[in-house]
């Protein structure tokens, strides 16, 4: 039997909302695919596009960035800075030939354990059908 492809996802989770929300999903014993390995950051605004590219170039099949809902940022406006940065990042990824589904920006509050689990579930499903990223083959950076 062919084994199912299990995508590897790096999750940048802000410590106040998304990380706490992800903790809550576990605390509530919600079952969802264990495909995300979390990297805890203070704020989604800390996520430098370099970190995302590093993950993809090192072998991740997808990257999830999750922060507080707009207006709820613990640092006032870090998440809105991520929104602007994310748009540029998406353009860059498109030019690299990386499918836009591979990098997601989501809002998860500290009380949304269920929402976090369903985001991870749908992202994992999506990446399963997209298959491995295989950065070295796919991404040809023009000299």
């Amino acid at each position: 039997m062919e084994t199912r492809f299990e995508p590897k996802i790096v999750g940048f989770l802000c410590r106040w909302c998304a990380y706490t929300g992800a903790d809550l999903a576990g605390l509530s014993r919600i079952n969802y695919p264990p495909n995300v390995t979390p990297v805890r950051v203070n704020c989604s605004g800390r996520v430098d596009p370099t970190l995302v590219l590093k993950a993809l170039a090192s072998g991740a099949d997808g990257v999830l960035i999750a922060g507080c809902h707009p207006g709820d940022c613990h640092y006032i406006s870090g998440n809105s800075k991520m929104v602007r940065r994310f748009k540029l990042l998406q353009r860059l990824l498109e030019q690299f030939g990386v499918e836009k589904e591979r990098v997601r920006l989501e809002w998860v509050s500290a009380s949304e354990g269920g929402r976090y689990a369903s985001i991870v579930e749908s992202m994992t499903e999506e990446l399963r059908s997209l298959g491995p990223l295989d950065w070295k083959q796919k991404v040809v950076i023009p000299a």
């Binding site: 990297v39 950051v41 704020c43 605004g45 430098d48 370099t50 590093k54 090192s58 870090g78 800075k81």
Partner: peptide, 30 residues
């Protein structure tokens, strides 16, 4: 929050306990 760290085009800003070196190493290891 680290917003300035992520935005600095010269990589001149570092956040203690969340340095670029620490995060990049963590990501690569994952």
């Amino acid at each position: 929050c680290g917003v300035c760290v992520a935005a600095c085009p010269s990589g001149a800003i570092e956040q203690q306990n969340f340095t670029n070196k620490q995060l990049l190493t963590e990501i690569e290891a994952i």
